[in-house]
Amino acid sequence: MGAGNDPPPPFAAAVQRDGMTAFWRTHQSTLVTVFLLLPALAGFFGLFFYPMLLTVILSFRPEGHEVGWTLENYTRFLADPDGRWVILLTFILALGSTALSVLLSVPLSLILREKVRGHQFYRLMILVPLVIPGLIGALGLLLFWGSRGWFNLFLLQFMPFVQRPVAVNYTIHGLTMFYVWLYFPYTCVTTMSALESLDRSIEEAGAVSGANRWQVLRYIVLPLITPGILAGSVLTFMAAFGAFSVPLIAGGNYRPLAVEIYKQISIPIPARWSAASAIAMIMGLLQVAFLTLYMRFVRRGGGTGGPR
């Protein structure tokens, strides 16, 4: 506006100031965007990127030293049979609970889709484990499934041939079940929303073409909601893979990666930060690698016929 008509400014300072305003004018939009993103970027670098970088560096340092480079922290953990067992255990728990969550969620969502009596109550029940601290869930589960809990009481009193309490707590299958309790809502809710967004007229079209209700379910509904189920199962897997508080108090001798990391810095004196960092790096890499593979699988085969 009129800037071009002004006589040339007499002083160099004025030139500079004019340059500044011109710069502001042309880049205003970009600068505002950068300004808006600044807090998020600061948080990202300060609370995620830099800590991760530090963990990477630490994982290559000899234990207790601030200088020098070594691969020992990795090799020691990976060469140790216990270390490999920890990795295997983490995968067993995460994959087992993910599979069980899918098996539980699919029929559950199909039932709740039919608006049975009290379906809203059941929907709410499904959400409960999501808002509860994992710690509290684990505590209640330990109490319920323990040798003096209702589960064993029921077995002892009403089931023949059960003479002594059945061990659930601190076993691998018990822990898997606890994981399911905590993390199946991710799968279930995603499956339910996939079912809800399904156009009923597509099923009608299937029925009109001569498919019975089972066939409609098998050939139409399931293929269409598979992407939703898989997306939800990824969330369950991620949560189960990274689970920390539950195995910490309910795992007993079964310590998946997250607990193993914490053990390294909490039990030995002095704390073994480098060892912990190395295990953390292994854990992070394993999760990223697995997710990448999983996504590729989902995109190639698992998600055929999905509407989105």
């Binding site: 993103l37 998020a40 970027l41 990202f44 609370l47 995620f48 830099y50 800590p51 991760m52 970088l53 530090l54 963990t55 630490l58 991620m238 893979f241 990274g242 920390f244 990666l257 997250a258 990391i261 914490y262 810095i265 930060w273 912990a276 960092s277 953390a280 790096m281 854990m283 992070g284 999760q287 990223v288 997710l291």
Partner: peptide, 23 residues
């Protein structure tokens, strides 16, 4: 950019919790 900023959701918290604690 969005994917990068949301990256902390993809990584188990314990892995960056170590670095956060150290800092």
């Amino acid at each position: 950019l969005m994917a990068i900023i949301l990256l902390p959701r993809m990584i188990p918290p314990i892995t960056y919790a170590l670095g956060v604690a150290k800092i």
